[in-house]
Write a protein that binds this DNA or RNA. Structure first.
Lengths: 231, 231
DNA sequence: CCTTTCTTGTGAAAGGTTTCACAACACTGG
DNA sequence: CCAGTGTTGTGAAACCTTTCACAAGAAAGG
């Protein structure tokens, strides 16, 4: 399951729209703290380095939240986006693989802040099983199904070596999990009724490397923002 | 600087193409280890869950590497992609912020494997400065410019709290760095002659959350792969 | 050397996303 | 209650990416 939801009126909602919504949400949180009452698409776009039309189109997939002549009510819009993204509730997350990256994720405060609580840890290293990370006990992989069910886990994060990641994701899917975030540097195959995302840090560095090589070769080629729409 | 390079004949190369190249590179590495001589776009596409046309089009931006009737020579194509991505050389990377995520990155083997060597660490916590992580000394942020120049750093990774990330990225750019990978959960503003990428784990979870909510609401809407092209 | 089979490379078509442009509406001030 | 200004919501246009479809070339087998 890669992409492809429909708005109320059947227009297709792209992955990019969802990611921008996440950004709007963060910006609106800041604005709310700064006591803004309303914000225009123009100002929101300026802060996000987008066009005002883009902002309006993104929001329009989900309804009309603004007032002509005035803009969008900051507080309401933020709540509405939280609802659309599903982060107005608590999600139970399990993490498999308590290595370097896994440990970092346990301590990562941004997750909790957005409603993602890591409730379960797994590893198959006997030395780690039973140990305590930030108050969470590391369980044996053999208890996977039992524990996932008991703790009502919604989302599983996978931070294991690339070589075993596919086996583990297969197990996880077999336990009925429908949403997986993968940190192993491999592309995993999942049934298409499972939501799957992958975070690949090395690939982002490769993109930068490509950019640097092309910058050096041509020493030009830079793309300017076309649509600053500064106020 | 966000996107926008041109192929030899001026066709535009998209971000997606570069990311797919990274994937092809990994698959070709596996194939080479398994002693494959050649691979067809059809087979490569099957492994990547893409269409053969997509694979051929991606490669065609950079030249014609295949032989009609035969396919692509695995070894040569891998080398060629490594060259396109710029990972056929060593890049010097510095990491700022030796907290949870920073520490994980220091130990992340995939970087070294792809030619990205972390050569420098920075922090502004006096307790961390001078300490040793995997053989690399943590430097004071005050020595930023001196050390970046001395170690000929190409790429800087930023793993500091969101609140200070913008200041740090400004400093880094002032030191002449042109490529930045950000792990802080904020969108940073950089001049458009700087290559910038951001890794935001919380945003990926939000995408999964959105997917789960929409799955629950509609219980349908899944998108099947259209183009399996199985052999 | 000819026929068959295979697979690339690529214009053209289809499909998707972003931007434009403007009608519709809301508020303000006279 | 009307004119002026500001901003949304949205079809249509522009732009970008993917897929199709096929000519061109390569190998194999007679």
């Amino acid at each position: 399951m890669t992409e492809g939801w429909k708005a109320t009126d059947n227009r297709k909602i792209s992955e990019s729209t969802i990611h921008r919504l996440s950004h709007y949400y963060r910006t609106l949180s800041v604005l709310e703290r700064e006591d803004y009452e309303t914000i225009s698409s123009r100002e929101l776009a300026r802060r996000e380095k987008l066009t005002p039309a883009q902002v309006r189109k993104d929001l329009s997939f989900f309804g009309s939240f603004g007032t002509r002549g005035l803009g969008y009510p900051v507080k309401d819009l933020r709540a509405k986006i939280a609802n659309i993204l599903g982060i107005d509730r608590a999600w139970n997350v399990a993490l498999i693989g308590v290595g370097n990256i896994g440990s970092a994720m346990v301590s990562y405060k941004e997750f909790v802040k957005q409603g993602f609580a890591i409730k379960l840890l797994f590893d198959n290293d006997q030395r780690k099983i039973g140990s305590n990370h930030k108050g969470i006990i590391v369980h044996d992989m053999r208890d996977l199904e039992k524990e996932l069910k008991a703790k009502k886990i919604d989302i599983v994060m996978i931070a294991v070596p690339a070589t075993v990641a596919q086996n583990i994701v297969d197990d996880v899917v077999r336990c009925g999990i429908r949403a997986i975030l993968n940190f192993a540097p491999v592309k995993l195959k999942v049934a298409d009724n499972v939501f799957y995302r992958s975070e690949n840090m090395a690939m982002e560095l490769e993109y930068l490397s490509f950019a640097l090589v092309n910058l050096a070769n041509r020493s030009g080629g830079k793309k300017l923002d076309k649509d600053s729409t500064n106020s």
